[in-house]
Design a protein around this nucleic acid. Structure first.
Ligand SMILES: [Mn+2]
Ligand SMILES: [Mn+2]
Ligand SMILES: [Zn+2]
Ligand SMILES: [Zn+2]
Lengths: 139, 139
DNA sequence: GCCTTATAGAAAAACATTTTCTATAAGCGT
DNA sequence: ACGCTTATAGAAAATGTTTTTCTATAAGGC
């Protein structure tokens, strides 16, 4: 998904795409990583300008409403990754926190009717990506 | 898993089973629910005696080391559920927060070698349990 | 351009979690 | 059963994170 599409989705819910949100979104969407609020704040500061940490928190909140982020709890910390498109699952590198989407869901074929009425599900794989499998963790 | 087994696991790691931990563990293990630290603290207070909130936090920490809890992030809150035994997945009722274990994993049959080296995975279903499907949410 | 109002960001407040400190009791050895 | 060692309880303080408040600003519609 590109920034223009996000802009449309923002406008559809009466949110605005400010200069600051654009900076944060660029870093966030292009990274392929997941971030805590503080980590994304730091990264934006490096690549663009300083923005308020509050702005990052508020963007996560807005993107949550637009269902454009997925939160992960890792070691007690909340990480967010940009997520768009149809149903998919995730592989998360425990070293570099890069995220890969996994398509093709086998859950739909199973019957869980006696367990309860399923609203949604998540499937997350954790491990080490190719870049991080060398003797020296590179990323 | 029963309390005696947990006691053994505690002792194996040089932890102690105190009276307070036993109270908390009884509520936690027998509930089939997941709790935030504060929720479990309140529940123990109702059913047994008042214990320190710190004690609950420390028990979650200890049980994490023993791999006897699984954390869930729901609406920005961290919930823990007692988890023992072999590999399994979960169904979580969004209404009453009861948790059901799901056995039989289809992930092992799939090949993710080109994605990365998988350490572990999680699969969680969210929805409404039988008790909570009536017009009046009962639990 | 003008107007309305959502948003930025600093500061404060609220909240969750961890640490510190001293008294206590769990578990072990005798 | 008794005594010893040390992990733990719990209150209080500290820490770290997230939210709220407030005023100036700028996004977006007309
Ligand atoms: Mn995704
Ligand atoms: Mn379980
Ligand atoms: Zn990696
Ligand atoms: Zn239920």
């Amino acid at each position: 998904m590109d920034l223009e599409t996000v802009k449309s989705k923002l406008h559809a819910m009466n949110f605005r795409l400010t200069q600051e949100r654009e900076w944060v979104l660029r870093v966030f969407m292009e990274s392929g990583e997941m971030f805590t609020a503080m980590q994304l704040y730091d990264r934006v500061k490096e690549q663009y300008n300083k923005v308020g940490l509050t702005t990052v928190y508020r963007l996560f909140e807005v993107l949550t409403k637009l269902r454009l982020v997925t939160p992960f709890l890792i070691d007690g910390e909340i990480y967010y990754t940009f997520c768009s498109g149809g149903h998919h699952h995730h592989f998360v590198c425990l070293d570099c926190h890069r995220v890969k989407n996994i398509y093709g869901c086998e859950m739909d074929t199973r019957d869980f009717s006696e367990i309860g009425k399923i609203e949604y599900h998540r499937m997350d794989l954790f491990g080490h990506c190719e870049n991080c499998q060398g003797s020296v963790p590179s990323c």
